[in-house]
Write a protein that binds this DNA or RNA. Structure first.
Length: 328
RNA sequence: CGCGGGGUAGAGCAGUCUGGUAGCUCGUCGGGCUCAUAACCCGGAGGUCAUGUGGUUCAAAUCCCUUCCCCGCAA
């Protein structure tokens, strides 16, 4: 089967790998977003999909848009029978949707109709969900609104973070697309419209989403920190005004018995992996991993040993700002 | 040439402004205390201070210059 793949980040690259390694499949091309035009020192950063494709001899296409005629010519030249999409980042216009005889299928990182959109994995963890998954679906002109083919549940463990869950879902996405290809080849594929009710939208992560809000319960702060690890990470502000990313933590429901002001550092431990206990609206979070501004990812113990933080410091409040107005 | 931080012992840092004995918190090794310990006490090892047989100086981790590398932000 002649397949054209479209996708961009890690999850998409793993999906491409699964499809590419599948018997009876010819990947005629990989469409991915253009290399990021800048980076530190003007570096170009190719997408994971592009890297995989180049390493495996798959032609790479990086159109700025699918809407103009330039891509239509490419599409006709590649002449795919099926288009497989995973986290490509663009809506497909009708002429693309209609071209392949077997249609366009997508692997989405949630159990639709929940978490349609750009950041379903992170949003599911942030919301404290215990189950998410991959939905294999046909694409239409809407945002993740097409008919479903199959859903693959995946539990979210307390030990999961954005990185581990993405890895798990990436494997499922690969499996899902291989199953879909088999079903299409066998003529047994089925499609079910999404329920009209229960849909939610998982907007992309904004800087505001990254800002740790210690006024929330410990569990919420914990969910936020792990959802955004390893990238882009939850972030707070040190008493000196510098940024501090929080990469690892665990909740201590009874860690703030005296009801200290949210953001207050209650305890620092510099032995071993160490930890930094920070008061929350309810309970406290024990931060165990951080990235100081201009520094590498390090354990809380290393950070404490460097004497950058001490009990009594208040996080999340810029110097001169009233701690009572931590909202907004 | 987008903005900024940094390269000092195995780890994280201080010291650099105001040149003049290489320090701190840990880890590690040895000893002690203890019923015992990741706790406490004592002692030791471990660093050409990223690079340049660079410049200035009586003297450079520190001031000036070179090159390389790392990281955060922004996209």
């Amino acid at each position: 089967m002649r397949i054209l793949f479209m996708g961009t980040p890690y999850l998409a690259a793993e999906t491409l790998r699964a499809v590419h390694e599948k018997d009876g499949v010819t990947v005629v091309g990989a469409v991915t977003r253009p290399d990021k035009p800048k980076g530190r020192g003007m570096k170009l950063i190719p997408s994971p999909v592009k890297e995989y494709a180049l390493a495996n001899g798959i032609p790479v296409f990086q159109p700025k848009t699918l809407r103009d005629g330039a891509f239509r010519e490419t599409l006709e030249a590649l002449d795919p029978e099926l288009i497989v999409v995973a986290a490509y980042g663009n809506i497909l216009p009708p002429y693309v949707l209609d071209y392949p005889k077997y249609g366009c299928v997508n692997a989405h990182g949630s159990l639709l109709p929940e978490y349609r959109g750009a950041a379903p994995i992170e949003r599911a963890i942030m919301d404290g969900k215990t189950v998410t998954g991959i939905t294999a679906m046909y694409m239409d002109e809407g945002l993740d609104t097409g008919d479903m083919i199959a859903r693959y549940p995946c539990p979210i463990e307390d030990t999961d973070d954005g990185g581990t869950l993405t890895e798990k879902l990436a494997k499922l996405a690969g499996q899902a697309m291989c199953d879909v290809i088999d079903a299409i080849a066998a003529g047994t594929v089925s499609r079910t419209p999404q329920p009209g009710e229960g849909s939610t939208y998982a907007a992309k992560i904004t800087p505001e989403d990254q800002r740790a809000d210690f006024s929330k319960p410990a569990r919420v702060v914990f969910n936020q920190i792990r959802a955004l690890n390893p990238s882009p990470s939850a972030e707070t502000v040190m008493p000196d005004g510098s940024a501090l990313k929080l990469t690892e933590a665990y909740p201590c429901e009874d860690g703030n018995p005296e009801g200290a002001l949210p953001g207050t550092v209650l305890e620092t431990v510099g032995k071993g992996a160490g930890r930094i206990l920070v008061a929350c609206g309810e309970g406290a979070v024990a931060v165990t991993g951080v990235i100081p501004s201009g520094k590498k990812r390090m354990s809380a113990g290393d950070f404490v040993r460097g004497r950058k933080i001490a009990p009594g410091d208040v996080l999340g409040v810029k110097p001169g700002e009233d701690p009572g107005h931590s909202e907004q």
